[in-house]
Simulated assay, not measured.
Amino acid sequence: MIFRKGELFCGPGGLSLGASMASVEALGEEYKVEHVWANDYDAGACATFRHNICPENPDSVIHQDVRELDIERLSAIDAFAFGFPCNDYSIVGETKGLDGNFGPLYSYGIKVLKSHQPKWFMAENVGGLQSANDGNAFVQILQEMESSGYTITPHLYKFEEYGVPQSRHRIIIVGIRKDLGWKFQVPKAPFKDSSTWKTSRQALEEPPISDDAMNHDFTQHQGKVVEMLKYIPPGENAWYDGIPEHLRLNVKGARLSNIYKRLNPDVPSYTVTGSGGGGTHMYHYGQPRALTNRERARLQTFPDWYEFLGGKESVRKQIGMAVPPLGVKIIVEAILKSFAGIEYAIEPAKWDDELHLMLTSGERLKIPTLI
């Protein structure tokens, strides 16, 4: 059984790559996912997606603002994915939620569900979604997914427990069309024990990255930055007490913990991000420099053959905003096993006990969507 997949906010293709890696077999039949169409407003991300996911069908990737996309005319699909923009839900920033410019964009995913009625969908966002607008944004989004005809299973996935060498916590909502008569179960995290987590050293060194690897350009730092980094031990940041006074940053106000923070080689990395200026590019544990984009891609579990197109900063943004393919593979495999009738180890969804209450409590927020 092949599930034909459409995707909004596709980014550089992390979710699609993970989905394409998932495959199960039952009674001689293979269950897998096939790309049909994708959309994003970022030109670099679209170019990367075309280059790696569907080079034989570049027109299937639509570079366009989702608000101008004719959703009803898109090809029929059996599966749908959307990592709707997280800018307004992230704990880093103003957390405007549904009141922001990006917050209401999830509603275009709802429009796809209502128009195309795929058999299943997968939506992804940051953990901050659960607290945006005092928690009301999360409730509203879940209510709209459910009322579109889906039995939903939201869960906070800790990707380091799914083999990703990075502490990255994301809400993923899987929905199964109600007429199919069953509910998705969260696959048990294979690496619950922290002693089994993949470390940043393993990600960057096993195997070593070749000197001529794609997207492996080094940053030319100012001398003062290099000297400061030499005083910062692995796992520490620009506020480390051992940095000489003349090398310290002259910064007033909040001291963000990821400023010039070096990786700890013995644990998963901290979260790879796509935004932020100097000092937020992630820093190597053994060398006084920022990580290359290829190293950042390794932490996101992209294979070395996956080439990101665009300028260096565009690529950095693409990598940071992507969903780790390895984590997606495990979740999509569980979806495929469900359809194939194959049992797998499960764990309770984070909001199992509260979900019914969230879906039936009160009126939705009176916030207009963009549709």
Rank of each mutant, 00 (worst) to 15 (best):
G320C: 05
F84N: 01
F159M: 15
G135M: 10
A26T: 06
R67N: 11
G97N: 10
A349K: 02
L69Y: 03
P187W: 00
I2R: 10
R255S: 08
C86M: 09
V164Y: 05
T271R: 06
P55F: 06
L180D: 01
E206R: 14
G278P: 06
P104Y: 06
L156H: 02
E307T: 14
E236M: 15
K183L: 00
Y89L: 14
S269F: 07
E68Q: 14
V112M: 13
R255Y: 11
S115K: 11
G93F: 05
L129I: 12
E227K: 15
L27V: 12
V328T: 14
H169C: 07
G149F: 00
I2V: 15
R201Q: 14
R289I: 06
T280W: 07
R201P: 07
D217R: 13
H35F: 10
D304Y: 05
Y283L: 08
P208E: 11
P12R: 00
D217C: 12
K198R: 11
L27P: 04
S200F: 04
G276N: 03
T301Y: 02
R168H: 06
E144K: 09
K261F: 04
P368Y: 09
D212I: 12
E7Q: 11
Q202T: 11
A290E: 07
H155E: 01
G97Q: 10
P244L: 04
T153L: 02
Y31I: 02
S23M: 13
L229M: 10
K317L: 04
V66T: 07
K317F: 01
Y150D: 01
I152R: 00
E354F: 11
P187Q: 09
Q185T: 08
Y283P: 06
R50Y: 01
K192D: 06
Y150F: 07
T271L: 04
H51C: 02
V33S: 03
H356M: 08
T360R: 09
E146N: 14
Y106E: 08
M228Y: 10
C86A: 09
P55A: 05
A322Q: 09
E30W: 05
Y157S: 05
